[in-house]
Amino acid sequence: MLEQQLINALSLGSVYALFALGFTLVFGVLGVINLSHGTVFMLGAYAALQAVTRLNLPLSAALLVAFVFSGALGLAIDVLVLRPLRQRQAPHLIPMIATIGIAIFFNSATQGLFGAENLRFPSGLVPDQQLIWGDIQISVLEAGIVIFSFSLMAAMLMVMKKTQLGRALRAIAESPKAAALLGINVEGLFMLTSFIAAALGGIGGVLIALYSNAVFPLMGQPMLHKGIAVIILGGMGDIRGALVGGLFLGFAEVLAVAYIGSTMRDAIAFGLLFVVLLLRPQGLFGKVLERKA
């Protein structure tokens, strides 16, 4: 059954990669560890759920709702909280703590509005047939997640490598000040990055809510912890790293459950992280940030 395990690992890994993508983008460009990313992710799932249950929209429209809603939220967080901190040049721990406050706010607001219980998308929203291929089976949803994550990642890489926008973003990642001197609209691109990262997080939230069939206020927290492990594994701020780190973690977890036992599943992510950091402090893909005196 190794093939089936590998398929499971592929879909789980794609889910992690999808989450980590926005997370690593914000770190790479804005230099902020955004601990509210898990919350934005959760709110995306709630927005889509509302769109489906209240407005009777189809899944595609609900995904669009989640995209726009989460994106707007990410933009608002950037403009209202992160930008003032940026202008003050606060040390990097400070924005991180602000995002903790934001996460607490939205998590408990959601709990107050919708209750702490598990909500579900109505059944039949996604065709629940299985694609069978010899011994291997994969659900339509899982296949969709894998394809979506990979194509998104490919599109992002293309944008980053080949377009003027990508060059500008890479310049900002190197040094916002130098980028501004070269005439790049740094603030505008910060806002765009915040929007895109959060919007992708929202989409990820919907897909994972469908995948695990559960929407609840704290659904983003375990994801956030895994996301941190993923972007460290892959190298912080690296898009390829998010994909590779996500898949790596997915495979490690699935294989650990299959061959070691399920109790240690969560120790794998962080145990692995610990070991990788000791052997390769910059992550699998990260650049060496060595300072010479």
Binding site: A98, I100, G101, I102, I104, F105, N107, S108, A109
Partner: peptide, 9 residues
């Protein structure tokens, strides 16, 4: 907790 979060920010 919501207000707690706002105060933190």
């Amino acid at each position: 907790l919501m207000i707690n979060g706002v105060i933190l920010v």
